[in-house]
Design a protein around this nucleic acid. Sequence first.
DNA 1: CATGAATGAGCCTTCATTCAT
DNA 2: CATGAATGAAGGCTCATTCAT
Lengths: 215, 215, 215, 215
Amino acid sequence: MVALKSDTSQTRTRQQLLEAAGQVFAEHGYRAATVREICLRAGANVASIHYHFGDKERLYIAVLRYAHERSNEANPDLSRPNDSNSPEEQLKIFVRSFLTQLLERSPLAWDGKLIAREMVEPTSAIDIVIDERMKPLSKRVRDIVRSLLGVNATEDSIRESEFSIVSQCVFYHHCREAILRLYPKFKATGPEIDKLADHITAFSLAGLKAKAQRK
Amino acid sequence: MVALKSDTSQTRTRQQLLEAAGQVFAEHGYRAATVREICLRAGANVASIHYHFGDKERLYIAVLRYAHERSNEANPDLSRPNDSNSPEEQLKIFVRSFLTQLLERSPLAWDGKLIAREMVEPTSAIDIVIDERMKPLSKRVRDIVRSLLGVNATEDSIRESEFSIVSQCVFYHHCREAILRLYPKFKATGPEIDKLADHITAFSLAGLKAKAQRK
Amino acid sequence: MVALKSDTSQTRTRQQLLEAAGQVFAEHGYRAATVREICLRAGANVASIHYHFGDKERLYIAVLRYAHERSNEANPDLSRPNDSNSPEEQLKIFVRSFLTQLLERSPLAWDGKLIAREMVEPTSAIDIVIDERMKPLSKRVRDIVRSLLGVNATEDSIRESEFSIVSQCVFYHHCREAILRLYPKFKATGPEIDKLADHITAFSLAGLKAKAQRK
Amino acid sequence: MVALKSDTSQTRTRQQLLEAAGQVFAEHGYRAATVREICLRAGANVASIHYHFGDKERLYIAVLRYAHERSNEANPDLSRPNDSNSPEEQLKIFVRSFLTQLLERSPLAWDGKLIAREMVEPTSAIDIVIDERMKPLSKRVRDIVRSLLGVNATEDSIRESEFSIVSQCVFYHHCREAILRLYPKFKATGPEIDKLADHITAFSLAGLKAKAQRK
DNA sequence: CATGAATGAGCCTTCATTCAT
DNA sequence: CATGAATGAAGGCTCATTCAT
């Protein structure tokens, strides 16, 4: 009974440490984040991190894995084909889902910020991010692009188009702070996201069609 | 002549500190960067930073301004209209110049990384980056977009298109590490940059034309 | 019992830091004192000060409060009326107690030096010294003076007399170093202190009586 | 002519450094004072101190000597007998002069504060203060006391009385900060100084008379 | 299992001093 | 004679980590 209770307690502490660490790492970056602040937010002891995860670096890796699991539970369909028939419709749905995930703002949405940081300043944990999160997404977009460009499309042109689509979405996330300052009135929330998704989809479909014809 | 040499000596130390600081700030970020490493690379004493710049923060700001000047000297035409007549041609030239600046790789190219960091984790110096570097660029792209979308284009649609164009360029810079790992064979150097610029230009022109017709 | 020992350990480190800090602050003054020397004397790590007290300033304040408590335990009757009937006797007892406290010499007697420093070069903690130590003393002396000057004494004349009495005592403390050099043979220890107290009491009583008659 | 001009300039810089150093040492104490602030106030170069005085410590000693000279010029009569016939009158004049010198407040009055610091925290320069400033003063007071106590007075009783008189004066200087806080309304300026001098003189004369009779 | 106390390395900054001119 | 630039030795403080319980 003691073991059971303590095991439950341990799991809860672990979870709280992961959530707190996710927030703090997202806010300050790996090096600037302090284990003290993480423990404070998690309501845990300073030493508990070393007890549960060994050290700061292994905590960080655990956080990235945890973020992946959490995200999969929340958005299970992002990297899987949806039921729509037309690839145009599939693109539209993908862009909207992706944008929504990127721009969703809540204290729990430290996820994307962590990934943005890994892009700019990769840590040893970047392979986790690449393998577990980027690759499925990339494949999904490539599939859509391929069906829009036609069978004769080269791998290079598929990659170029993939990046053109993805870049337009992640831009709003990566450059959020710059956008906020360049266009203070512009807020990417709710209906604005839908409008943005429509633009990106239409813009990209036109680009893809032109590319398909040229090739 | 004595005065000249002494003046040169001071200027040289300052310059070396700025270059070293640019590299170190780009590699580790503002907080994680240490003045010790900066001075080590500059071959200067730890105290020299405080003599020349006051403190770490003012050194950082000086580095940002210095980067701006250096970049202006290297790419003087990026934010100014060029001689081309057609806006299509202007877009093409802009994209190529911008991409080149972003992807140019050398030990001296810490500039873009610094800005990428400011996007993800703004410091108190972000306004300098926005005002002195982003705004001129943004205006240049807006001008091109406006002439392509026609006089009836709304400010919203101009902004959306501006971001679509810029995002496709900065993506290769911001997400370089991810791209490197997703497509290990792809290197954005020399002729590849031109090919990329062609794609982005064509893709965007098609997107803009479709947008112009819809509106 | 485990808890007790652990508790004792913390208390011991804190106590040792306070004692060491008291000595070092008294010897060098707040600014010139270094946390390194304090920790060295306390046999503790440099970081322990920041663990226990936050920073140097809060350590200093803690030292002042600690000195107050220690002094209260040692001389509990200094600022309280004693059993003597006549105010003359009360003055005599006060002067002797005060002088004794001021001139007592031991490695533990950093207390007075700290206060003397606050007089010459007040830190932000001076209000603590004033409120917790000066005011009770001042009130005690005023009470004695008032009963000697009579009910018609003005507040000004009470204050003047208060200062005349107190000044004669603190002089031996504040100017100890000068006295030592002007009168090398004079040592204010043991019986000398009693003789001094007798002089100050008689001198002051005569002064007070003259003042009472004039008024 | 070059030598003459430079000699004059040198003398002026020296003087300005001494004045500035006097102020800064008085404000912050020897260790906390910085040569930079001194040079800044003197409008001189950081290196000029080492040029004119060698190092910080020798500057400090030079400041003490300079203070002595300056003070002798300003108050030439303090330690010399004045023309009054009665010792009572001599005491009164001495007390008033001494108090005035101690309480005079101006940016140039760093003199007394420096001495007060030497009392609390003697530096290696204390002997200068003792020999050149204290001893003449002490002798003057002893002479007055001796003539008031009569020929049979012991050296001990003369010393006790000397200290009783001097202490009442220096108290207002040494404990100025405490007095300011205990009696915020009390300002020792102009007429208040005269009133204070009257009190101290009367108080002390009564004390001395009582002492003379007892002996 | 978990905790509060303690550690030592390292950070930015400041200082008196010296150097080259 | 005098200066601005440069230096190295601290200084206070913070951090991730470990220890004793």
